Simulated assay, not measured.
Amino acid sequence: MDRYARWNALLELLAESGRVTVEDAADRLDVSQATIRRDFDQLAQQQMITRTRGGAVANGVSYDLPLRYKSAKHSAEKQRIGEAAANLVVPGTVVGLNGGTTMTEVARALAVRPDLNTSGEGAQLTVVTNALNIANELLVRSRMKIVVAGGVVRPQSFELVGPLGGALLKEVTLDIVLLGVDALDVDLGAAAHHEGEAAMNSLMVARAKRVVVIADSSKLGGHAFARICPIGQVETLVTDSGAPSSVIQSFRDAGVHVVCA
């Protein structure tokens, strides 16, 4: 396990329990206690955790970890989901994309589809996004038309939030929005941890003809702080095969078309 994978695992442990000792972390990650102490010291220097005698405690923002620490989690599932979501996009349309690790995989899958990158009449794809990393992925890998909503950058997700971006989104129409979420529940709908991101995502939903939620199975049935939209506005859910059949059926009963990658 490399350093960044180890840091990701430590942050996940702290997010779950709030506190962890050096001894427990070393046992669970199968590394030396000296390695864990160095990891804790380095994470504390970055203000990701607070060091305590013999261990560490989570900071208040640990529920919303920076994107670089989330990338290793459920990576195989996210790649499959990204490919399945990209297959829903039709050449020549306008697509909305928000940010997140799963949406990065969606962007990569879109970029390698030859039919979305041709220069023929009506073939070029237009992507509207409020995430800087998504725009960069597509810019360096494809010949699509990229439109970036303005706003203030959130370092955790590289997403732009606030009224500057909202003004642009109110003036465009999206054929389809592919929306990464922090939680999706039949009763509570789609939600995000940060209210600014939720507001931007909600505007994308309002401007889209079709709403497709992209979420791995760990996000299903959960809840997050700020609602994006009710389940009734979601046409399709793209998730992985690890989702329990009962959960999948509950979404289908609610009228959502479910694609399991």
Rank of each mutant, 00 (worst) to 15 (best):
Q249Y: 09
V153D: 00
R154A: 05
G151V: 07
G96F: 07
I36N: 02
K78I: 03
K78S: 07
G100F: 04
F40V: 15
V186G: 12
L10E: 09
Q79T: 13
L174Y: 03
R227L: 00
Q124L: 15
R207I: 01
A190N: 05
E159R: 04
F225M: 09
A107Q: 13
G55K: 03
V140F: 02
T129L: 01
R3F: 04
R141W: 02
R38A: 14
S246R: 10
V20T: 12
A215F: 06
T93C: 11
G122Q: 05
T35P: 10
A243K: 07
N98D: 13
G122K: 03
P244G: 02
G196L: 00
S119M: 13
I214E: 01
V147T: 09
P91L: 06
G222Y: 03
P114D: 13
R227T: 14
P244H: 00
A167W: 06
I134E: 09
S119D: 15
I81D: 01
T104A: 04
L220A: 02
A26G: 12
A226I: 03
K209P: 11
D185G: 11
L65Q: 02
E197R: 03
G60D: 15
Q124W: 10
T102M: 07
M200A: 10
D240N: 10
Y4V: 04
L125P: 08
P230W: 07
D253E: 07
P114W: 05
G96C: 08
A84N: 05
D175Q: 12
A191T: 04
R252Q: 14
R141L: 08
G54N: 06
L138V: 01
K78N: 08
V106F: 02
L169Y: 04
V31L: 09
A25L: 10
E159K: 03
V256Q: 01
E235V: 03
E159F: 01
L88Q: 12
G92D: 13
